[in-house]
Write a protein that binds this DNA or RNA. Structure first.
Length: 350
DNA sequence: AACTCGGGGGG
DNA sequence: CCCCCAGAGTT
């Protein structure tokens, strides 16, 4: 074991955080818990995940229970957490583990990575944390810690290969799961993107960037593109205490989630004119524009939408559409963008 | 290698 | 406003 790994593990033993998915000191980690938490933690902060993890575990205590659930129920519980492909793959993965692996998760990085939703990071993390394999675990925290430790001047994402090799060079064969979690805890609390707390760092003596005094330069990243703005009109159709919702297609943005019918979300400088939105309205009822504007930002674009409302004569059936009781709108599991759009109707605008 | 895919919190 | 976050899958 390298000196760096030993110092880090000693620090971890003194500063270990208790997290809902983390086994009690000395106990074995439950692969189902580790897997569920790691999927939720992809691009998502610990604070955000905690509540969702508890809810999922209470509703589906085992991988068998999760596999047996309807996809709609899983998406409903996932609503608000984002990156909904994770929820679809989570469900698929559970079903695969039950049907093809007798309900037991594969115990190797290679076997895990063959499952839906488990990639380089998650496969290595589960193998190390739940099964003690000395896999090389690299997430955003580790990229930052290692790029500083070795002062990697190459920019991401090209630097990923070098960073992984450096990480492998300090990953111990003993306690690899604790080592991985220690690296991530260090990145989250000490080796932070801005104003890193180097005085508290257990491995600062071996840190090349700390030696040079330019820690915040790392990791070097490629410049990012500016986000365009898309604009659309959304449709709120009401009948007899119900509102019309759309079940979105499985592929693409917000796949499988409920939402409102709308004009296409297109990059444009102005909102669709009446002439334009007439072609996209779900019914020929009398549609009236509402005050207010809903704004939401996705990973690669901004969205602005206004709302049109109408009362339907009858509860018609819609392709990919369903009527949902207004009183239970909170329970359907709307993605955040549609909650904002609904608020234009349900809460008075100025 | 570049792009798609959410949402929230911190500076 | 910008940044980042226990990234994966597709093209």
């Amino acid at each position: 074991m390298t000196k760096t790994a030993r110092q880090l593990l000693e620090w971890y033993d003194r500063n270990r955080r208790q997290l809902p998915w983390r086994a009690a000191d000395g106990a074995d980690a439950d692969p189902y818990h580790v897997w569920l938490s790691e999927i939720m933690l992809q691009q998502t902060t610990v604070a955000t995940v905690k509540g969702y993890f508890e809810k999922f575990l209470a509703r589906w205590p085992s991988v068998e229970a999760l596999a047996a659930a309807p996809q709609e129920d899983v998406l409903q519980e996932w609503a608000g957490l984002g990156y909904y492909a994770r929820a679809r793959n989570l469900h698929k993965c559970a079903q695969t583990v039950v049907s093809e692996h007798d309900g037991e998760f594969p115990s190797t990085e290679e076997g895990l990575k063959a499952l839906p939703g488990i990639g380089d990071y998650t496969g290595a993390a589960i193998a190390a944390i739940a099964f003690g394999e000395a896999a090389t675990v690299v997430d955003g925290n580790v990229e930052r810690v290692v790029s500083r430790l070795f002062r990697v001047t190459e920019a991401l994402p090209a630097a990923k290969k070098a960073i992984k090799e450096h990480t492998a060079s300090i990953t111990p064969s003993e306690r690899p799961g604790d080592f991985a979690q220690a690296m991530m805890d260090l990145g989250a609390g000490v080796c932070t993107p801005k104003s890193p707390k180097c005085l508290l760092c257990p491995i600062r003596t071996g840190c090349a960037a700390h030696e040079a005094g330019d820690m915040e330069r790392f990791p070097v990243k490629a410049p990012k593109k500016t986000k365009p703005t898309r604009r659309a009109m959304s449709f709120w159709l009401e009948h007899d205490g119900h509102v019309l919702l759309e079940r979105r297609p499985q592929k693409g943005l917000l796949g499988g989630m409920p939402g409102f019918f709308s004009t296409p979300w297109e990059e444009r400088a102005t909102f669709p004119t009446k002439e334009e939105w007439l072609d996209h309205r779900p019914t020929e009822d009398y549609w009236k524009p509402l005050e207010g504007l809903a704004k939401h930002t996705f990973t690669h674009f901004h969205l602005e939408t206004k709302l049109l409302t109408a009362k339907a004569d009858a509860k018609l059936n819609f392709e990919n559409g369903f009527w949902h009781p207004l009183a239970q709108l909170e329970d359907v599991g709307l993605p955040t963008v549609f909650k904002k759009i609904a608020a234009l109707k349900t809460t008075p605008q100025k």
